[in-house]
Design a protein around this nucleic acid. Structure first.
Lengths: 252, 252
DNA sequence: CGTCAACCTTGACGCAACGTAAAGGTCAAG
DNA sequence: CTTGACCTTTACGTTGCGTCAAGGTTGACG
């Protein structure tokens, strides 16, 4: 059985252009060309195309499919394993994105006049997640994915009232930051209050508290420029002040 | 506070090229240009960039971000809601891909000489899933995602022995198909046996049996050219013979 | 035998969101 | 005044095709 481009294309549910492209990149060459230069495929190419489409469905790049198909010595299992990891990472990323969008949508409930603030909340949260990944490996191992999910649920179930409370507490944090900025003494009573308030604020969105995570977040406040800019807006050196207070607090 | 491209880029963790590109597409214009044509950004642009990066993290296309940012009348909530659906679909797709890769990797256990066959198994399964989506909505509503997951688990936990059994049964299905092909009578005893064998074969990878799904799959055997080609290879008109036998079987 | 639709060919641009030169101008430090 | 680190615009490469464009081939019909 022989096929022209269009015939094979319809058989396999792809476009003619796709077959020409596969020819072009050397992924699937026709069995032969007829006297006027038409591509002629045989049933052998049908089989190969089937395999190609299978891997394509899995999102494997055509270059890699080429290797899998044409190089019998190629370690297909390894390639698939690798691809599996890639896909998994991407899926996990999307999972996080979904959670963030949910939260962003929910936080819209908080009213209109603080919209910009909310947007920053979203960013903060993103950074919090990054922080978790950087500093909180142990915590993740301890509590696993469940914790993360709980955190989202907690946030999701947060009422508008809670949300406003959370913002009020953040204002208190700011006020204490300004106070501590005068002495810059992380061992002072106000510094302790600052760290405690910050913990209180944190607990609105964190399902569990751990000193390690708290300190990790504090370190990131200083390390991440965008983040520290947020606190430095409140008072010069705000991020460092907050960090020092927290570090001293968690280490008694 | 004013920034050059590089400064703002480092502050926000993006490349200078990105900022130039955002300028080019009108997403983020610098506050002004200096006398020699350098881009100068103010802290206002920092804030806007923050928002842009937030949405970019969510995978929102830059064109849409542009609307969200620059058009205050734009329904951001609706846009995010829509985007949420998009991302969810993509994530679900990746979930399925992961399951398929897993299965493909597992099926490698089945031995080397039937590798090509296995690849087709993967394709068949992909089509089975599509079939489920097309014809099996009711079933999905009945059993939900759990069923699908169970199906994968069942496959995952299938031993090499089971796998070989499954293939042996498929051979029996082929033999019966050839027999029935002589009379083409879907009401014959052999046709009944054929349908039953096919069900038996099916149950290796399906967690539950339903007549609707079985018939749906049968219909697809005929509707999908690539699929029917697989059965037509066994015997001419094989897909139709199998379909008719199954249809008669499930309707007593 | 002509012709007309439906195929086929190669070539080339477009898409998203930049990365990466290339070719040249600007600026602050030494 | 030179050097190196910045800045500018222009433009091509990436992935997997979709979509013209301009022209040749084929097969059915009158």
């Amino acid at each position: 059985m022989e096929y022209t481009v269009k015939e094979l294309a319809q058989l396999a549910g792809v476009s003619s252009r796709t077959l020409r492209y596969y020819d072009q990149i050397g992924l699937l060459k026709p069995a032969r060309m007829n006297e006027s230069g038409y591509r002629i495929y045989s049933s052998q190419e049908v089989d190969i195309l089937q395999q190609i489409l299978f891997y394509r469905e899995l999102g494997v790049p055509l270059e890699q499919i080429k290797e899998i198909i044409h190089d019998p010595a190629f370690d297909e299992e390894k390639a698939l394993q690798h691809h599996y990891e890639q896909v998994k990472q991407e899926r996990d990323r999307l999972d996080k994105i979904l959670a963030t969008i949910e939260k962003t949508l929910i936080s819209k409930k908080g009213g209109k006049e603080m919209q910009d603030k909310e947007k920053f909340e979203g960013l903060k949260d993103k950074l919090m997640q990054e922080n978790e990944e950087k500093y909180g490996k142990e915590i993740r191992e301890k509590y696993g994915e469940e914790t993360v999910k709980k955190s989202y649920e907690k946030f999701r179930n947060m009422s508008e009232e809670d949300f406003k409370k959370m913002q009020a507490i953040e204002q208190e944090v700011f006020a204490l930051m300004k106070k501590v900025a005068e002495t810059k003494d992380p061992t002072s009573a106000d510094a302790r209050k600052l760290a405690e308030k910050h913990k209180e604020w944190l607990m609105f969105s964190w399902p569990d508290y751990s000193k390690e995570a708290h300190q990790g977040l504090a370190e990131m406040y200083v390390a991440d420029e965008l983040f520290s800019a947020y606190y430095d807006k409140v008072v010069a050196g705000g991020a460092k002040i907050l960090r020092d207070a927290i570090v001293h607090y968690v280490n008694q």
